[in-house]
Design a binder for these strands. Structure first.
Lengths: 338, 338
DNA sequence: ATGAAAGCGCTAACAG
DNA sequence: CTGTTAGCGCTTTCAT
């Protein structure tokens, strides 16, 4: 076993630069009150030794950890099957580039894991990004006491004091309806998502508003519900078409459900978009691969990740507060199904 | 601003338990040389105070950090569009449940980020899980010097000293061919992935071995190449079918390419599986949503994550070594396309 | 089996 | 502007 070869310390840098620990510390931390000449000497010594501050030592005294917890309460795995998670992580990580801050991952599936995460967050994290499908997650509540800065991914179903960043689900749905109306569709139906999730309710609200704006009445016979899955989309489409033969456009609240719709339509020998136009939501990879390619509402998930970091850091800053809500614009990607 | 309310320290626990810091430390760390009565008293005090060790203080003296870096060198974003990343993370996290170990995420897109990660890994991490599409990634090399325990996700293209965990790409491809042969297909072709990635080469090797095992000659006119994307799959299928009219089965090295194949087949008015059978690889969510539903090779990505942790921890243990390679079995999920 | 004491590497007053 | 000093909370010899 060879010698562990400890990394250089502040002390060693100070010795090499011919100054004191304190001064080196100041330089390293960007404290302006250091003579230029001294600063340069220190900088040189730092480079020469390849010095990097010991985070443990630093956080012991500052009580900061320079790390942000990404807490995923994945009661519902569905949400994370999409590129969603990876994309959000990428965005967050991008926003953190150039800082010393690290992302620490905490998945909470079981109560045990949640407890562990809870303990951990309490003292070893400067801030939390919380991703949970259901906003009645106990974690939300625990975080809401403000003991640690936190930002939610997505609007919580029940209002909390926690700030959140969300994509404009309602706006996106409205866009979809508007598009369909402009294309001359007379009877537009929707397949909504589960109403115990914000994206489910918001997209339905958007649908209704879009109908209103287009001068249509959002008859309840034009609304069916699914659970965001492909099969549920097909089933809902079936119910819809059985009830109303005049439907010539369907907005599905997820791409997966839209694919189900496509399947049901084909089963019935209806042509897309000639007989029925279809619009999905998510603009996931699969949207481009369906036949016909699926028109879909795009949500900026990477921006979501980035903005969550921005908001969190605002909250972690001296002011200690940030906007309670940030809503990121969605837009429509028109393909062949509409 | 309210009082920061510092968490309880060892000192306080010791006071409450009527003993010394050292003893409490021993109890907390499971040191057996503590009197049972004393241990219980300490335990009680710990519970009462809700004491949790300060990781910074601990790691300052132990030089461990109790955290593992998950390094993602995503030169190729493609790989992470799939649920792949999320699933791998879930597996790793599961394997870490019940430990004090945290997962720290490090994405390296640019050289700058790579350098930063490099510095960070050097002293603030006990071990590394490396995920990189291209195995000539500089990070692999830097890690290979053994300064920090590391495990790779997937076989590296160029051999290194780093242990890796991989799914059985070749075996999966063989399974696909075997299945097609058993179904009575006379002329089986493949669309291989890029040959500068291990999954690309391994799945092609598996195809050839499968053909051999089935007593077929793996004629080069039966092999076309794509880049794992849907479009490339369609294009490759087009070339294949133009060259050989007798092809009645196609094994695509990714589900996305298989979807491209499905599209090209439909364009040509060929029926699936009646005229041509199709098998994909990945068993991703989309496989179940295509028409017809896609037969595909399933890879145990969550196991991959779990095993990486297991191997890493072996390496981090006293012995300091682990098996150089672990290959996880794949299996075929038969659906309607074959 | 237990306690006393010496730091781990760093920052933050406080003097100068 | 700079150096001195005093810890942050914990583990770990070393005595006892």
């Amino acid at each position: 076993v060879s010698a562990p070869a400890r990394p250089p310390t502040l002390e060693q840098v100070a010795a090499l630069a011919g100054t004191s620990r304190a001064t080196v510390s100041r330089v390293v931390n960007g404290n302006p009150k250091v003579d230029v000449a001294v600063r340069q000497a220190v900088q040189k010594a730092v480079d020469e030794l390849g010095y990097a501050p010991n985070r443990a030592a630093r956080s012991l005294v500052t009580r900061r950890t320079d790390s942000i917890g990404l807490v995923v309460a994945e009661s519902e795995q569905r949400v994370f099957n999409e590129p969603f998670f990876a994309t959000l992580v990428r965005g967050a990580s991008e926003a953190l580039a150039g800082t010393e801050i690290q992302l620490v991952l905490l998945l909470c599936r079981s109560d045990r894991e949640r407890d562990r995460a809870q303990r951990f967050l309490a003292s070893h994290i400067d801030g939390v990004l919380l991703v949970s499908a259901h906003s009645d997650d106990p974690m939300v509540e625990q975080l809401a006491d403000g003991s640690v800065p936190a930002v939610l991914a997505g609007r919580p179903l029940r209002p909390t004091s926690l700030p959140y960043v969300d994509v404009d689900n309602a706006g996106g749905a409205e866009l979809a309806v508007e598009h369909l109306a402009q294309r001359g569709r007379r009877c537009i139906a929707t397949i909504a998502g589960p109403q115990d999730m914000a994206p489910g309710t918001d997209r339905l609200v958007g649908f209704r508003e879009g109908m209103l704006a287009a001068g249509r009445s959002a008859d309840e016979s034009l609304v069916a519900f699914g659970d965001f899955s492909c099969g549920s989309g097909a089933a809902a489409a079936c119910r819809l078409l059985d009830a109303r033969a005049d439907i010539d456009a369907i907005f599905a609240a997820s791409d997966l459900m839209a694919i189900g719709v496509l399947q049901e339509l084909r089963r019935r020998g209806l042509r897309v978009p000639a007989d029925v136009a279809v619009v999905g939501f998510d603009d996931s990879v699969i949207a481009a691969t369906t036949r016909p390619a699926l028109t879909s509402v795009h949500q900026p998930v990477d921006d979501l990740g980035r903005q969550m970091i921005v908001r969190l850091r605002e909250q972690m800053g001296p002011a200690g507060r940030t906007s309670p809500a940030t809503v990121l614009p969605t837009h429509l990607v028109v393909r062949d199904s509409s």
